[in-house]
């Protein structure tokens, strides 16, 4: 072991306004989480291979048996599978939060003169980037297997905006799930029980009018269906109804509620 030069190079923390440090700390945490996307092989695989497999599964295995009326199944499918992948993708935030808790790294961040809840913001931001990448890949693959969108440039911007809003809201919910579950195993169960019903009991893979009454009532009125129908309408020109407005209300509302809950749980956490 070499000799420590602790005193010879005395470094000092800089003096800046607290707003400056807020931006500094958030950007450090965001940078950290973005690095995880490319360094964590599981994440990279989940980002690319899994959605493509789902696309193939529904397009070629189940698709032929599902009646989507006037539109082709692949045109119907892309909006649904996009939103479903984004929702499951948000579980990465839950997993990252739970991993950070388990490894004690959140405790360490909390002992620093830092805006430590920024660690959540970092994971959520990485989700945004990851989901944009994933959505672009999925739309590309969709086009290879027959997806023919009719959206204008403005429509695509609206689609991007809706997906970002949805990701942002769901990622904060996912952050709460990570803080509540605390372990990777518990996240997997919790995620399955919450994300699964909302994405499958929806208009993602089949039109809701073929569903039994009670299920249909749920599927037609839950927020995930609204966002799917809104994106679908913008992509292929199906009737848009009030889906866009309802999506914005739902997911803005969820964000407004989820952020304070997440930060409360984060502040309350005091170690294992």
């Amino acid at each position: 072991m070499k000799i420590l030069t602790y005193k010879t190079r005395q470094v000092k923390a800089q003096e800046h306004s607290s707003f400056y440090w807020l931006i500094n700390d958030l950007s450090v945490f965001i940078e950290r989480s973005l690095k995880h996307i490319f360094k964590n092989k599981d994440q990279l695989l989940g980002l690319t291979v899994q959605p493509i497999m789902f696309m193939m599964l529904f397009r070629y295995v189940f698709g032929g048996a599902i009646n989507t009326g006037g539109t082709t199944y692949v045109n119907f499918l892309v909006a649904g599978i996009l939103i479903q992948s984004v929702a499951f993708g948000a579980l990465t935030t839950s997993l990252s939060v739970a991993t950070d808790l388990q490894r004690g790294i959140i405790e360490r961040f909390k002992s620093l003169p830092t805006v430590s809840w920024g660690v959540l913001m970092g994971h959520v931001s990485a989700d945004l980037v990851r989901n944009i990448l994933q959505s672009v890949i999925m739309i590309g693959v969709g086009m290879l297997v027959g997806f023919r969108p009719t959206a204008s440039v403005t429509d695509w911007f609206a689609i991007a905006g809706l997906i970002l809003l949805f990701t942002f809201a769901i990622s904060w919910v996912a952050a709460i799930m990570g803080l509540v579950a605390k372990t990777i195993e518990a996240v997997q169960w919790l995620g399955f029980f919450i994300i699964f019903p909302f994405t499958f009991a929806s208009a993602a893979f089949a039109p809701t009018d073929s569903m039994p009454y009670a299920l249909r009532l749920f599927a037609e009125n839950q927020p995930v269906t609204h966002i799917i129908e809104a994106v679908r309408a913008l992509m292929i020109g199906t009737p848009v109804g009030n889906h866009i407005v309802l999506s914005i209300i739902w997911f803005t509302g969820i964000t407004i509620i989820a952020i304070p809950i997440a930060s409360y749980l984060f502040r309350q956490y005091s170690g294992r």
Binding site: W21, V28, K35, N40, L112
Partner: peptide, 28 residues
């Protein structure tokens, strides 16, 4: 603070971990 478990970031390199901590301590 150094706890009972090595609370470092698994996915970052040693160098990246130290730089990240330095910036969180508000060094330049």
């Amino acid at each position: 603070l150094t706890g009972q478990y090595a609370a470092v970031d698994e996915y970052l390199t040693g160098r990246e971990n130290l730089e990240m901590m330095g910036r969180l301590y508000h060094l330049s």
